[in-house]
Amino acid sequence: MDRADGVTSRRQAPRNRLQAPGPELRPTAPTTGTVACPRCKRRFVAERYAADLNVCSECGHHGVVGAAQRIAQLADPNTAETLLFEVGDRDPLGFDDGVPYPQRVARARERTGLHEAFLTARATLAGNPVMLACMDFAFLGGSLGSGAGEIFARACEMAVEERRALVAVCTSGGARMQEGIASLAQMARCSAAVAEVIAARLPYISILGDPCFGGVTASFAVQADVIIAEPGARIGFAGGRVIEQATHDKLPEGFQTAEFLLAHGMVDTVVERSRLRDTVGTLIRIYSGRA
């Protein structure tokens, strides 16, 4: 694909043409009816749950948040300009496990309204110019395919070009197995893109949501200046079930939770969703040398 083509909207707008989230970017959680907290099962009116950022007011459980909703939660009101990086259709292996892989992607696109597992936006966050790169677990488990990798890499490059801090929200099951080795290459690709952000000495803040595993954790998710985890998020390289099966060891209490990783020195802080914008904003302001 011609990279000079850069960003285009689905309506074939010119490079870097911006769009506010339209009706195609619908939030993952329903906005009508009621939603049950996955942990304590308490039911909420959907609007109220969304207003609480998908956090249960009863038990504090942090529910799944879609990428479009993430952008809305983190960006200052009316500042987010969603970037629709068109990455086309990819099927490096001609993969078919009953459903051809391109068809799986098409279905995910239809279901989520997203183009790939990453959605990016320019915005200001607590007044700071930022590039937001948010993963969506609803899009094939947030898996890191070559399209998702390309979007993240382009977001990094745009952050460098426009001197914006990079804020990534990572939630992923890991590699996109259907792309095989091309999926593995995304770890290198995204790392190379992060290296550009590092070289430009721009702040990079990574927020780890539930769950975050595999090649995403083992690359850009933890290459940030500051790693923030959401309460209760499960984060690691290999999944707990895989480890249990492979080693027959009993997993310790709270294994791979954000709090467990904090205790082991792997994340900088665990921050409740309602405090994310303030925390990230303060950090970027300090790193940028502003009062």
Binding site: T217, S219, G265
Partner: peptide, 25 residues
């Protein structure tokens, strides 16, 4: 890479991510 409790506690993903950046630069 080894999948195990100790490897996770000591940051398997972090160690790999760091090696990737190291090799790139």
């Amino acid at each position: 890479a080894h999948a195990g409790i100790g490897a996770e506690e000591r940051g398997q993903a972090w160690a790999i991510a760091d090696a990737l950046l190291c090799m790139l630069g």
